[in-house]
Amino acid sequence: MILPVVLAAVYSFFNWNGLGPLERFIGFDNYARALTDPLFLKSIGNNFTIVGLSLLIQGPLAIIVALLLNRRMRGRTIIRAAIFVPYVLAEVIAGLSWKLLLSPRGGVNAFLESIGLGDLAQPWLAQPDTALWVMFGILTWKYLGFAILLMLAGLQGVPEELSEAAAIDGASWWKIQWHITIPLLGPTIRIWAFLSIIGSIQLFDMVWVTTKGGPVGATSTMATYMIQYGQGNPGYGSAVAVILFLISLVIAVLYQRHAMRRDLGTSDARGDD
């Protein structure tokens, strides 16, 4: 498991087509080429846009929906199963479904026309200005259910006595959620954010089957770039992989150090007994 990553580091210093012996050592040239390629820089930017949008939009949305649904209600099982359906589908199959829905003559445009908003119909994934936003929309559709269920599971661990006491003291529902429930949900939120960041940094399947990173690099990510330009040139692809790895590693380490320290501290203490 670690071997391939080490190999990537070795290959990345060679100009190599993957077949002959490794003999054309070129030092950091592959890295220099990647880091000066506007398309690769754009891909990194796209990854971080997705990270930012996920944290700012998916997180709060999931928390609000989970807070509202966190009660005994009719059809609770059905709701949970239904919102989890997109998560269970393979990213490829979800991606292909949306590609069909969003094609110029697909279901979404047909729906817009049928409700009289035909002017809004457009080739969603085929034009650079909308493609990345639409991609984010699809990802939200796919992963929001998971985030909601995670938050609901986290809410099970929030003791109800505190909110009851606050309610008796006259605090409003929103105040209780904001000052008591959400802070207590902190560990779950931090874990979700971590999973979301790492997933967004390594985004590949969904983009590859819907747009292959296009149009003109609008949805390109580090991983799609790696496959697109690295499959015929493993030396270069490996350099891209190493950059991707270092970015994930730095984020993971910083995040663990700063955000999840407390949570991990408690689980360590429990594990050592």
């Binding site: 498991m1 670690i2 391939p4 990553v5 190999l7 990537a8 290959y11 790492i198 390594q202 590949f204 991983a223 790696m226 496959i227 690295g230 499959q231 493993p234 692809g237 490996s238 992989a241 190493v242 991707l244 790895f245 994930s248 590693l249 993971a252």
Partner: peptide, 11 residues
């Protein structure tokens, strides 16, 4: 910390 995505090509 070693994701499949990174290892895929050399693998």
């Amino acid at each position: 910390m070693f994701p499949l995505t990174v290892a895929a090509l050399p693998l």
